[in-house]
Amino acid sequence: MPAYKKRGSQTVVFEDTPVITSWASIVGPKEGQGPWGGDFDQVLADYMFGEKTWEKAEKKMLQEAINLALNKRDLQVDDAELILAGDLLNQTVSANYAARELARPFLGLYGACSTMAETLLVGAMLVDGKFFNRLISATCSHHYAASRQYRFPTEQGTQPTPSTQWTATAAGAVVLEWAGVGPRVTSATIGQVVDLGQTDVADMGSAMAPAAAHTLKTHFEDLQRLPDYYDLIVTGDLARVGMAIAEQLFIRDGLVPRPNYSDCGVLLYDEKQDVDAGGCGCGCAAAMLCGPLLKKMLAGEINKLLLVATGALMSPTMSFQGESIPGIAHAVAIEN
């Protein structure tokens, strides 16, 4: 009875649909001032979070988000059988060091800004596969830690372009269980790496949009569904430029992007917040999911959600060597 949970070319459907029993999000000051500030569990007063460096602050955000998600259900760290996490930094240090503190079995995953969907879908498979009863999927990003690694030193006077995105300072964690009360992960489409030759390191949206379109098209083909099956389809962090391009690609693929399509990078900030095209970073999709979106599912405002977290697999080294920027997107369907 081989691979009977697989549909079409890239999609899996879950049998004993894993339940998101708890979730938590922690965001930075700027995200707290955005339109969803009240929907996050914790808004930091500053970017340091009581630590000495931005990397350590990012690690602490991830660790605290995981603790918070467990504590909401009166669980302790030891109750989590496995932690799946990743982040944007080299060697995924935030996840590794958070896992050191939490001292639980740990698998580090890297999917750039698609990591929330990646950890969620791998986690759902492990739960549905009866390997674990309860695990954590989590990710995080920090604006200044990412900035110094991928762009310029913070104090260097550089001019952003209209397509530049603002890496979110945010962390999100969900508790996945085989039984319980909450929204359920029903299916997932594992994306393939798509690269249509974009090289502008100040424009991740254009690099990721083809991957998002490819994953969405495949998802609907594999499950023979129409986009209006979902109350909301939300991409990870394409932001305004990438979202506008993605909408064109959806139309080309015969999908109808409106009115139930949006993007976390566009949603996370107010247009007046000086973030140029919008938000990006692992924390962007993670905080939107583990804040406003799951809250709306709990309230019944959204009953069928498709999260398509997108990642630009950009490496400064490869960009210097003349390579273009590959993109990836994973889709996870969450239903009440």
């Binding site: 310029f152 550089t158 090289t199 502008d200 100040a202």
Partner: peptide
């Protein structure tokens, strides 16, 4: 030079 050429011109 920064605005008219293709991107990736840094300081």
């Amino acid at each position: 030079i920064m605005d008219l050429t293709k991107a990736n011109i840094t300081p």
